[in-house]
C-alpha cells in the first residue's frame, strides 16, 4: 500500500488527466475479507457473546433468565468440577503423547519410506473418517470386550495386573476404565496427529538428510538433530489438533468410560441438556476454553515455534 501511495508518479506530466484506478483497488482486500468476517461474526463471535451473557445470568426455564452479572457461577462451577477438569487435561495429554508416539513413526514411514504405497497408506489413515465417530468408538467396545481376545491376551500376559496396580484399569477388564477412555481418544484423534506430521515431514528437503550423513551424522543422529527439529511445526500443530478436541471430548468417556472417568465435556453436556443449568454449562465452557487457550499459549511459547504454527 505504501509504495502505491508514496511512489512519485513519473509519468504524471505525460498523462495528467489520467487518475489511476487506485481508489477501487484500495478497498479490494476488505471486500475479500468480508465473507470470512461475516462467517466469523455469525458463527463465532455472536455465539461467544451469547454464551458469555448466558454464563452471568440467573433464573429458570419458567421464569426466564436475566443477566445479573453473577460471576459466582464461575467459581462454583470450578470448585465443584475441578476434578473433571484435571481429568480431562490429564486424559487429553496422555492421548496426545500416545498419538505422537504412534503417529510419528507412521508419518515418517509414509513421508520417506512408503514410495508408491504412500497414497494407499494415507487413505488407510483417513479411512476411519468415512464412518461416524460414534460407530468407530462403539467398535472399541467389541474390541475390548471383557471376554474378547485382547483382554484375554493382556490378562494372560499379566499386563492388566500392572495397569490395575497403576489404577489405569480395574480388575480383569479394560472397558469402563481410564485406559479404555485414553485408548479411545488416542484412536479417534490419531489422524489429526498424523496428517500435520506427515505434511511437515514431507516438506523437509531430502538433501538435508544427505548433508547430515555427509557431515558424519549416523541415521539416528540425523533424525535427532535434523529431521525431528525440522518437523517441529508438525509436532506442534499435531499435538494441538489432538489435545484441544480431546480435552473437550465427551463421547469416549461416555461410551468407554465409567463414573470415575467422566470428563468436563460430559459435565457440560449434562448441565446443559439434563439439568438445564445453562449458566453453569456456559461458565464451564468458558473455563475450558480459557484453560486450553492458556495451556496452548504456554506450549507454543515453550516450543519456540510461534512463527512456524
Amino acid at each position: 500500500m505504501s509504495t502505491l501511495t508514496e511512489a512519485p508518479p513519473p509519468l504524471a506530466p505525460a498523462e495528467p488527466e489520467k487518475r489511476p484506478p487506485r481508489k477501487r483497488g484500495r478497498f479490494t482486500p476488505y471486500w475479500l475479507l468480508l465473507p470470512g468476517m461475516l462467517w466469523l461474526i455469525v458463527f463465532f463471535a455472536l455465539p461467544m457473546i451469547y454464551q458469555a451473557s448466558t454464563s452471568v445470568q440467573q433464573g429458570s426455564l419458567e421464569e426466564g433468565y436475566k443477566v445479573t452479572w453473577h460471576f459466582a457461577t464461575y467459581w462454583n462451577a470450578l470448585s465443584e468440577y475441578w476434578p473433571q477438569f484435571l481429568r480431562s487435561v490429564f486424559y487429553a495429554a496422555a492421548a496426545t503423547v500416545l498419538c505422537l508416539l504412534l503417529g510419528y513413526p507412521l508419518a515418517y514411514t509414509i513421508a520417506f519410506r512408503a514410495g508408491r504405497w504412500k497414497n494407499l497408506i494415507m487413505i488407510l489413515v483417513i479411512a476411519p473418517f468415512f464412518t461416524s465417530f460414534l460407530i468407530r468408538t462403539l467398535a472399541w467396545k467389541t474390541i475390548l470386550a471383557d471376554s474378547g481376545p485382547v483382554v484375554h491376551t493382556l490378562n494372560s500376559l499379566h499386563v492388566l495386573d500392572l495397569t490395575d496396580w497403576l489404577g489405569w484399569t480395574a480388575g480383569d477388564r479394560v472397558l469402563a476404565t481410564p485406559l479404555a477412555v485414553v485408548c479411545g481418544l488416542t484412536y479417534n484423534f490419531l489422524p489429526f496427529m498424523i496428517l500435520p506430521l506427515y505434511t511437515s515431514l514431507e516438506r523437509i528437503d531430502g538433501r538435508l538428510h544427505e548433508a547430515a550423513g555427509d557431515l558424519y551424522a549416523k541415521p539416528w543422529t540425523t533424525f535427532r538433530k535434523v529431521t525431528f527439529p525440522l518437523s517441529m511445526p508438525g509436532v506442534v500443530s499435531g499435538t494441538l489438533l489432538t489435545f484441544i478436541p480431546a480435552a473437550g471430548d465427551y463421547v469416549n468417556a461416555e461410551l468407554l468410560g465409567s463414573t470415575d472417568t467422566r470428563m468436563i465435556g460430559n459435565v457440560i453436556q449434562t448441565q446443559f441438556l439434563r439439568i438445564l443449568d445453562y449458566p453453569t454449562a456456559a461458565a464451564l465452557s468458558f473455563i475450558l476454553m480459557a484453560a486450553i487457550l492458556a495451556m496452548v499459549t504456554f506450549y507454543i511459547r515453550r516450543s519456540g515455534t510461534e512463527d512456524l504454527v
Binding site: R207, L208, A211
Partner: peptide
C-alpha cells in the same frame, strides 16, 4: 558442497 547448499534451516 551440495547444489543449492542444503544448509540446515533450523
Amino acid at each position: 558442497v551440495f547444489q543449492s547448499y542444503a544448509l540446515f534451516p533450523h
